[in-house]
Design a protein around this nucleic acid. Structure first.
Length: 866
RNA sequence: GCGGGCAUGACGGAAUUGGUAGACGUAUCGGACUUAAAAUCCGAAGCCGGAAACGGCGUGCCGGUUCAACUCCGGCUGCCCGCACCA
């Protein structure tokens, strides 16, 4: 008798209909407002994981909701397809990176299609397609023309076994993650994108991104790291000058330092150079001990743990520098391991009293500690610095012309004096560095440059793009396969036609993802990276959804790229993403067997008493806390299997229920069952109800139950719409469930009520549509509609049904709830007061005392102060 | 070290932003249907006391503002995240 919802059949059916009708293909329809929503595109690892499911469900709800609201929606998908794992697969499994990647894409696309996403698949691309990276090469050349590309030397982590540069994350305990060999620091000539040219602008514009999470903006702000200070030159003293002249024929130089605390210059007791400072290198040529010290510093890793534990050590060069201000004598010049060459000038002045690192260093090398900032309430005679540097506010003393000034004023004055003496300038320093994009790898976008012995680096002429990756490469020896290729790199110089060599480095994969959102606008255009009119129509992205792990690099690079693309005329906007949403992670309990080996959830059976055992061996299993799903801990659930047994809608509903999208979500089987039950429940309701035909006019009078249900229906429409707007999908689910509970109250015997039930079920189908698109379409059809639900305009709440004519008013006595009274809406204040005071519970609570004061909030509360 | 976030029943969470705390769901318990189970439906439930009416307590802790505080302010505690020898 009762029919059951056939998930698999229904989901396949609707997916096919959407695809056949090209429902979600977008064009630049200028009669409608546009809405561009996208998820961060996946790396084609081979399978989708739960994080993907959550990500795409979120953007899909937005896409479908906005579409129903009448927006012209673009919701695209692509593949972040270059990267190291493909090369690892090539090495480990003897399969070509391209083959591996495209097979993975094929599998993952099929899984995404099964999720029933409202995606315009006609715009799909992979970044490893020459038809994509060809445009990227063009962008590189355009950026080069306007001076946003630079070639310079930089220090890198070098793996001497794999012959490649490693990212910091690939250096584990100072060793290469694959080779296990100790990583060396090397100087290498690399291509850079000059993101620092936009440091100030990228920082300032964060203020305009009011639809970004505060947290992400702060992270970017810290990353850009603007600090105001001064560059100050310390001249080397006579004896030192002569020593240097001995060491090197060139003339001796000054030492320039950067400081944010020019107000503490009178507290200086030493100068410290980075081990990689040019002057240190110069001295090391004649000083074997110094050379050894520098080598030692470069051997020590840069990992956080190492830095944490590392002691501050230095080497006294014997040089003396003249203090910028008179009468301050000479300062010893050290080379110190804690000074970074990459920041500021690679040299500092040490003021031990007011900087903890300098203090540690000074104590170790018995250097003077002279306080120059007097903390409030301290006495100048008695104040001394012990083991903790004083970095707080105060008044400057022991500092000649700065004496008596507050810290900020003293900074200004000090800078003015330095500038007057031509010993330096006030300046702004950024923590942000230029973006090194060269990678010694095969599976990436080739950098379109040809190196010629006589002409230097020459851009590849645009007519020769793309510079395509050769297919016949071998991964059987370490290093860059492009470099080993017998013929690929041999080309004629485009300028002088002499034999020349191609650049064999490829782009960092972050380059690929820095402009893909723009490419979606013109994905089928083969002439240009983006067609300006299309970009102008769609950009910026209205809502970008993805993991917070990309809060800095990817999002910052994309912001930079967009500016660079604007300057080179490709787009018209500065900011790529007007709205950003960062989703939480998916967590699951983890399990270990007796031997401490991780187990998959499906290998574990839970017992009633809370213990757990292995499904097969029945040996006890330790249940660990719920933590982020990761392959290494095996606490993962395969979305494919969930979709197989419960369908996509169940997975989607579970993702949206309970946990707010920005928070972590714990995956539980019980939660999945709950979602599954609910979707069957509403489907049954739509399929079994005996309703008046589609389009029957609503009666003008309703039963009490009917009237109540109608209020619930319109309340739900209003609340769910608001919840969607606010990204509170868990609330939307709760409101939808309340609506289905309310519809259960209707009387199946009442023909009048059944009109209301039709209204309610149609609203219900529409409200769940963005979240459960398949069930919703199926319900819509069962309700007798011939059109697609997803083409149906979003329902509007009847405002007259949103206000109750009877309200429940809470009555408090001295702020404590004592009674609730039912009153007609907008009852006069004094009537509400009278009714409240007449309530027996209220009288009892007042205990015969007179009311001193009565506060009435209309239709809400009466508070009697007795 | 610097920057930021969070804390509400057994659990996930809600509270239109100062106005009835615990919506909605999970798990639990009781009932109906069933030979039985599953599914489904109905009901109970913050904690303490009470048969109940009702009363007391209650949003991490301490204090403040207010007629009224999960919400605002000050001070703690505990977890979580980002950056980190950035001068």
């Amino acid at each position: 008798m009762t029919e059951r919802y056939n998930v698999q059949a229904a989901e396949t059916k609707w997916q096919k209909i959407w695809a056949d009708k090209k429902t979600f293909q977008a064009t630049e329809d200028r009669t409608k407002p546009k809405y561009y929503v996208m998820s961060m595109f996946p790396y084609p690892s081979g399978r989708i994981h739960m994080g993907h499911v959550r990500n795409y469900t979120l953007s899909d709800v937005v896409a479908r909701f906005k579409r129903a609201q009448g927006f012209n929606v673009l919701h695209p998908m692509g593949w972040d397809a270059f990267g190291l794992p493909a090369e690892n697969a090539a090495r480990d499994r003897k399969i070509h990176p391209a083959q591996w990647t495209y097979e993975n894409i094929k599998n993952m696309r099929a899984e995404l299609v099964r999720m029933g996403l409202a995606i315009d698949w006609s715009r799909e691309f992979a970044t490893c397609d020459p038809s994509y990276y060809k445009h990227q090469q063009k962008l590189f050349l355009d950026f080069l023309k306007v001076g946003l590309v630079d070639r310079k030397e930089s220090w890198v982590n070098w793996d001497p076994v794999d012959h490649t540069v490693l990212a910091n994350e690939q250096v584990i305990d100072g060793k290469g993650w694959r080779s296990g060999a100790p990583v060396e620091k090397r100087q290498l000539s690399q291509w850079f994108l000059k993101i620092t040219a936009y440091a100030d602008e990228l920082l300032a514009a964060l203020g305009t991104l009011d639809r970004w999470p505060e947290k992400v903006r702060l992270m970017q702000e810290n990353w850009i790291g603007k600090s105001a200070g001064a560059r100050v030159r310390f001249s080397l003293m006579e004896t030192a000058q002569s020593r240097l002249r001995e060491a090197q024929s060139s003339r001796a130089q000054d030492i320039e330092v950067f400081t944010t605390r020019p107000d503490t210059l009178f507290g200086a007791s030493f100068i410290a150079l980075s081990p990689n400072h040019p002057l240190a290198a110069q001295l090391a040529q004649k000083d074997a001990k110094l050379a050894g010290f520098i080598a030692e510093c470069n051997r020590t890793g840069t990992s956080e743990a190492v830095i944490e534990a590392a002691e501050k050590i230095g080497y006294d060069t014997g040089l003396k520098a003249q203090h910028v201000f008179e009468g301050q004598g000479a300062l010893p010049v050290y080379v110190a391991n804690f000074v970074l060459m990459e920041y500021g000038t690679g040299a500092i002045f040490g003021c031990p009293a007011h900087d903890q690192r300098d203090l540690d260093f000074a104590r170790k090398y018995k250097l003077p500690v002279k306080p120059v900032v007097l903390p409030p309430g301290e006495d100048a005679k008695n104040f001394a610095v012990g083991t903790e540097a004083y970095t707080g506010p105060g008044v400057i003393y022991n500092s000649q012309f700065l004496d008596g000034l507050e810290v900020e004023a003293a900074k200004q004055k000090a800078i003015a004096e330095i500038e007057k003496r031509k010993a330096g300038t006030g300046t702004v320093q950024f923590r942000l560095r230029d973006w090194g994009i060269s990678r010694q790898r095969y599976w990436g976008c080739p950098i379109p440059i040809i190196h010629c012995e006589s002409c230097g680096p020459v851009p590849v002429p645009e007519k020769d793009l793309p510079v395509q990756l050769p297919e016949d490469v071998s991964f059987d020896r370490p290093g860059n396969p492009l470099d080993h290729h017998p013929t690929w790199k041999n080309v004629a110089c485009p300028k002088c036609n002499k034999p020349a060599r191609r650049e064999t480095d490829t782009c960092d994969t972050f380059v690929d993802s820095s402009w893909y959102f723009a490419r979606y606008c013109s994905a089928t255009n083969s002439d240009k990276p983006v067609e300006r009119s299309q970009a102008d129509y769609w950009l910026p992205v209205d809502k970008y959804v993805g993991g917070v792990e990309h809060a800095i690099l990817h999002l910052l690079y994309s912001r930079f790229f967009t500016r660079a693309m604007k300057i080179t005329g490709h787009v018209g906007v500065d900011e790529p993403f007007a709205g950003l949403f960062t989703q939480g992670m998916i967590c699951h309990e983890s399990y270990k067997d007796e031997k401490g080996q991780w187990l998959y959830p499906e290998e574990v059976q839970k017992n009633a008493d809370g213990t757990a055992q292995h499904v097969k061996t029945e040996k006890p299993v330790t249940v660990g806390r719920s933590e982020t799903m990761s392959k290494s801990k095996k606490n993962v659930v395969d979305p494919g299997k969930i979709i197989d047994s419960y369908g996509a809608d169940t997975a989607r509903l579970f993702m949206l229920s309970d946990s707010p999208p920005e928070r972590d979500l714990e995956w539980t089987d019980a939660g999945v069952d709950g979602a599954w039950r609910y979707l069957n429940r509403i489907w049954r309701k739509a399929a079994e109800a005996q309703l008046p035909p589609v389009g029957s006019p609503l009666p003008t009078q309703f039963t009490d139950k009917g009237q109540k249900a109608r209020r619930a229906i319109h309340r739900a429409i209003a609340d769910v719409s608001r919840a969607f707007e606010q990204f509170h999908f868990n609330v939307a689910v709760a409101r939808v469930r309340e609506l289905s509970n309310a519809l259960d109250e209707l009387d199946a015997q009442s023909a009048n009520d059944m009109h209301v039930l039709r209204e309610g079920l149609e609203a219900l189908a529409q409200l769940v549509g963005p979240m459960l698109p398949h069930v919703a379409e199926d319900m819509w059809e069962r309700l007798g509609h011939k059109t697609l639900l997803c083409d149906t305009p979003w329902p509007k709440a009847d405002p007259t049904l949103l206000i109750d004519e009877t309200v429940t008013i809470a009555v408090q006595v001295n702020g404590k709830l004592r009674a609730t009274i039912m009153m007609p809406r907008n009852t006069a204040q004094k009537d509400a007061e009278a009714a409240a005071l007449a309530d027996p519970n209220v009288q009892r609570a007042m205990d015969g005392k007179p009311a001193k004061k009565i506060i009435v909030v209309p239709n809400k509360i009466v508070n009697v102060v007795a």
